[in-house]
Nucleic acid binder design. Structure first.
Lengths: 242, 242
DNA sequence: TGCGCATAAATTGTCAGACATTTAAATGTA
DNA sequence: TACATTTAAATGTCTGACAATTTATGCGCA
């Protein structure tokens, strides 16, 4: 049997884990100040650079923040949705691009997740969410809009749809999934005709959400999912031929 | 006007960002070796410890890995679902605990997301997934099982349910959401009676998935969501009374 | 007394150089 | 050829120092 998988890690990793555990287990609370680098070095029996490497690891995960000067130091950070959002998207994007996730798989996941909150969105949407959705539809209708701009607007539209569910946990989880998929969606160069079809479906979704009709909204979303998948297959087939 | 919000960051952050961008934008590909620390220090015009701090930041995000010895160094890491899984859960867990997310909100998000994949799970499940679900139900039926053990088994059951959809992107997104919620679920001390009700619903779900009946499975899941929410409210009310 | 400014102290940020450790290639030998 | 040894390259770690930044302290002065 393998005795212990741990001790082969370098010191800075071990120290980072020790501090991380203290935070996760609640032994250190938000905004509490960690000991100074010199004291941490003393306590762990290592040098200051080693401690610093550990602290940088934690900072990279937004678990701590550092302030300079007297009474400065490292503080336990309050994780916010906004702060973790960027990391979440970076990770999800790389995960997709590095693992050759097929367009079909990504598409399926995306629309399944959106379907999870469209019922809630229909029930709870604010006028503001609706206005955002309609504004994005208007942008998408501009024929001079670039493909990248169209995709970005598409993401914004779906983001508004997700936010309309008024559940921050859902928004957080879905934002990563939807936005990470944008590079994949960009592979589909939208023709004028397919843009029109997508805008039509977006409009039906927005209308249904506006009327608080979850059934129609869900149906339109499913149609959009099927259509997007078909577009993706078309592009893949064209590539295979050419 | 604020001239530039960037340059106030320390050197190791700047360097980490520069390298991260190179990876994200595809200028460095998976398994490509970065220059040695000494050479990076030369190129960026900083000292080796500063470069090392930057590399540790990237390592904390699993963007690179380092190997010792001759021909060792830092390599662009292929992000895998497994590797990012732990980070995802840590982040999501802290996000929930540090932002006072209500049990109701978390619960709603969790079951909404699970509902997103239960239809797929019913259509695609393997015998293996079904076996895992039934095994967890058996564990849950053991009256000597601790509350923590029951919650862990509950998570494993739902994990199997999610995996049954056979979509790695969905599994990745949902694993974080479901597992992050375990500490919140632990707040509910399950009585023998509520355990029985939960096991009954789990059994109905497993049976429906086994029969590939998405409608019944969805209905049972919704019932479970409502029941869990009720339990949570009961605990909250009991606390409020004192 | 009360105000303002210089000073000190604490802490992180950065640097330079050194040594230890690990790993694989190169070399030498039977 | 096969195996042991040496060597080189790289990361891991330590020591000590100095720079930059921020707050508190204390002093002088009105």
């Amino acid at each position: 049997m393998k005795s212990d998988p741990k001790p082969r890690r370098d010191l800075s990793t071990q120290i980072a884990h020790a501090i991380r555990d203290a935070i996760v287990e609640g032994r250190m609370i938000v905004d509490e100040r960690l000991p100074s680098e010199a004291e941490l070095a003393d306590r762990f029996g290592v040098s200051r650079p080693t401690v610093r490497e550990a602290l940088k690891r934690l900072a990279a995960q937004s678990l701590i923040r550092t302030e300079r000067g007297a009474f400065g130091g490292a503080f336990v950070n309050r994780l916010s949705y906004d702060e973790t959002h960027g990391q979440q998207i970076t990770t999800a994007t790389l995960l997709l691009s590095m693992n050759a996730v097929s367009f079909a798989t990504a598409c399926e996941a995306r629309y399944a997740l959106e379907g999870a909150c469209i019922t809630l969105a229909a029930a709870r949407r604010d006028d503001e969410h609706l206005a955002t959705m309609r504004a994005e539809i208007a942008r998408q209708s501009d024929p001079t809009l670039s493909d990248e701009g169209f995709c970005a607007s598409d993401v914004a539209f779906h983001r508004a749809l997700v936010d309309a569910a008024q559940n921050p946990v859902l928004s957080y989880q879905l934002a990563g999934a939807v936005e990470a998929m944008q590079p994949l969606m960009n592979m589909i160069t939208f023709t004028a005709r397919s843009r029109g079809a997508i805008i039509d479906l977006h409009t039906r979704i927005a209308d249904a959400i506006g009327a608080r009709d979850a059934t129609i909204a869900t149906a339109a979303l499913e149609e959009l999912a099927a259509y997007t998948l078909k577009l993706g297959k078309g592009v893949a087939a064209a590539r295979a031929r050419g």
